[in-house]
């Protein structure tokens, strides 16, 4: 009981930190504070949180273009992330990567990725290395419903299955492949149906229910650690924003959008209700979590703004390992 309370509160904190970071990031982007592309994770916080809550520091994740949430949930530092969004020399990638390429190999974060579906082979390889080295570490491949149509999905799941690799494929079905709705990009309703094609377990779950996600991930990760091979988990959710910041998402039905953003469906509000219902926290506790997250994000922004730009000579470094 105490354990469950602590776990849920911890997950709530992670979700709040993600949401606060993402809200700040979109405001800053709109204000022209940093260039490039930003893909917001707003609305999908429960997935990264629920999955990564079951990981050790020595486990690996491969993220996506919409990767801030995964990074935060895996332990990424908000100040280094924000500095990277600003392209500053103190950022995770010394300003060379930006939003789509943030990585922290020491934390097992093998990068966000600018290529849709590119993380799956890499996570498969990371899982291979975990198995080869006879560790019980696992790798997680996060990807979207759109990426589940890519060639790399097919080749990775097949290989991971026949080699029984310790990898969990987590599909964040947010309903949209850029502007293309799921029904317009695949002839199935549940991405998890595709597990059949590789002889592995596949489940579809409510992607806005952090407890359900955590439980499904726990089982899949346990299975992977035991050497029983991969699992495909589909988390059904909704992307609050457009594909990228600046995309008004005009292709969405306003009714759907309204419904998904309502208190009844919003992943964060649902956890809050649960916490109060179970008397794990009161409103003041929740407010404190939010205030702490805001303080942390403010500090990250300050850090980023005060950090120096990279030296132009940096353009020539890090191309090869010498």
């Amino acid at each position: 009981m105490a354990e469950k309370k602590e776990q849920l509160l911890e997950m709530y904190k992670t979700m709040v930190r993600i949401r606060t970071f993402e809200k700040e990031a979109i405001d800053l982007f709109a204000a022209g504070k940093f260039p490039g592309f930003v893909h917001s994770y707003l609305g999908e916080e429960a997935i990264a949180t629920g999955v990564c809550a079951n990981l050790k520091d020595s486990d690996y994740i491969c993220s996506t273009h919409r990767g801030h949430g995964h990074l935060i949930a895996k332990g990424g530092k908000l100040d280094l992330m924000m500095a990277e969004l600003y392209g500053k020399s103190t950022g995770y990638c010394k300003g060379k990567g930006g939003s789509m390429h943030i990585a922290d190999v020491d934390l097992g974060i093998l990068g966000a990725n600018g290529i849709v579906g590119a993380g799956m082979p890499i996570a498969t390889g990371a899982a291979f290395a975990c198995k080869y080295r006879k560790t019980d570490n696992v790798a997680i491949a996060f990807f979207g419903d759109g990426a589940s149509d890519r060639a790399t999905f097919h080749e990775s799941l097949n290989l991971a299955s026949i080699w029984k690799l310790p990898v969990v494929f987590v599909c964040e079905n947010n309903g949209w492949a850029i502007s293309n709705s799921q029904e317009n990009h695949q002839n199935i309703t549940d991405v998890s149906d595709r597990a059949t094609a590789y002889g592995i377990p596949g489940v579809s779950i409510d992607g806005n229910d952090v407890m359900a996600i955590s439980e499904a991930a726990e089982e899949a990760i346990k299975r992977a650690r035991k050497g029983d091979g991969p699992t495909l988990i589909e988390c059904k959710t909704w992307r609050h924003r457009g594909h990228f910041e600046g995309d008004p998402g005009a292709y969405k039905d306003p009714k759907d959008q309204e419904e998904w953003l309502s208190d009844a469906k919003d992943a964060l509000v649902r956890v809050e209700k649960k916490l109060i219902e179970l008397k794990y926290a009161n409103k003041a506790d929740l407010d404190k979590v939010k205030a702490d997250a805001q303080t942390e994000v403010d500090a990250a922004v300050k850090f980023a703004e005060q950090s120096p730009d990279p030296d132009p000579s940096e353009v020539l470094t890090d191309v090869y390992t010498v």
Partner: peptide
């Protein structure tokens, strides 16, 4: 090389 018994099992992935 194949993770399932039959290649045709893969039809389910496309409905």
């Amino acid at each position: 090389h194949l993770a399932t018994d039959c290649v045709s099992d893969r039809a389910a992935a496309y409905g």
